[in-house]
Design a binder for these strands. Structure first.
Lengths: 203, 203
DNA sequence: GCGTCAAGACGAACGACGTTCGTCAGGAAA
DNA sequence: TTTCCTGACGAACGTCGTTCGTCTTGACGC
């Protein structure tokens, strides 16, 4: 069963989640699709196992009340990078139940960090929910934008000129096209996480 | 072509996005699947048209500098409710390019609201991105959790007892199970949007 | 050493999906 | 009336997840 998960992760890492089919995993294992069902009940089940494996990789730091912001940010970043290593897999992560044990482990760790930071329990609980959901969505968006075979992965320049050619019913978009298209690497990610942590800290 | 979009939206509203297939739309139109391709180039294209139609429904308020928070919240809520009317459709929304004209219209409107509220352009631009991404992800999660597929839609009570039976390696989760499982209706949504707006306002 | 039998592996097939192709109908143009 | 073009559509292809019945294999009792 671990072999199936290993093979599936390899496929996702190299060809993206869209290429993850039972048949593809089977051929990677040099067998037929039917054989997989001895180790995995479903494709949904396989998806959940993948997410579990992935979540198990993130390291949870020992809570330090003076560094809770950095620590939470670190966990979010770890999670994001795990998702990005397996492009598109966050689609499965969004579909899988958050009562999954490995997912809960991360939630537990993040909860401990926020509580150590002095955040009220209710605020912390909802904050974790928001953060994990955002990380998930961010990873999915990045994967979708930079993935598909074609070339609709527009460069920033093309995006800028497209915004410039918009009708005049889009005044703000045209004026602030530079701001809207800025944000290389994961600047937007860092920005949003910091935004949420700010909000949490003030409550 | 509008007829195709209408039929597709009906299908999604009544049976969920998972049931949206070319064949299903075709039978709703009392024809065969091949006929749809005269009006729609792709299923992806159909998805994009659906999102466009949906986005066109949200009303953008005239910016009022004294009420920007309420106005932004209102737009987010409208968008959320549109998504929830068509369960699961946010999956398509996440996949579709954000350069879609109808999507841009909403971004333009939200940008105007934030700018009127005195938010710095760069902050506003990224803030919009975060907000729309979160709204999308939230709607998708809600749709997935309240799926028709059987009874893994656990009640809060069941969730509570499940948390209580967790091993002792989950101390915080067990202690704060009440907080973690609370949040009826869209309390969590309101919480998170307010969280982000707080952060935006302080920058 | 031999026979038995459970458990895993697998070929073949099913139904559903998105999509394409060749044909066909029906009205506009000549 | 004849021609031609543009939509509509039946049939089919290739791929997907999944199932079923058969086969292989290796441990165990005698």
């Amino acid at each position: 069963m671990d072999a199936v998960v290993d093979a599936a992760l390899d496929v996702v890492a190299q060809e993206g989640y869209g290429a993850l089919t039972m048949r593809r995993v089977a051929t990677a294992l040099e067998t037929g699709p039917a054989s997989l069902y001895a180790h995995v009940v479903n494709k949904d089940d396989l998806d959940e196992l993948l997410i579990g494996r992935l979540c198990a990789e993130v390291e949870l730091p020992e809570p330090d009340p003076d560094a809770w912001r950095e620590q939470i940010t670190d966990v979010c970043t770890q999670l994001r990078d795990q998702y990005l290593r397996y492009p598109g897999i966050s689609r499965a992560a969004l579909a899988t139940a958050p009562t999954n044990e490995d997912t809960l482990r991360i939630a537990e760790g993040m909860l401990a960090l926020l509580l150590a930071g002095g955040i009220a329990p209710q605020t912390a609980a909802w904050g974790i929910d928001s953060l994990m959901l955002y990380v998930n969505a961010y990873a999915l968006e990045v994967a979708l934008v930079s993935r598909p075979g074609g070339e609709w992965v527009v460069s920033r320049d093309e995006l800028l000129s497209r915004f410039a050619n918009l009708p005049d019913t889009f005044p703000q978009t045209k004026r602030y096209a530079a701001e809207l298209t800025s944000g290389a690497d994961h600047e937007r990610f860092d920005f949003t996480v910091a935004l949420m942590l700010d909000g949490l800290a003030r409550r």
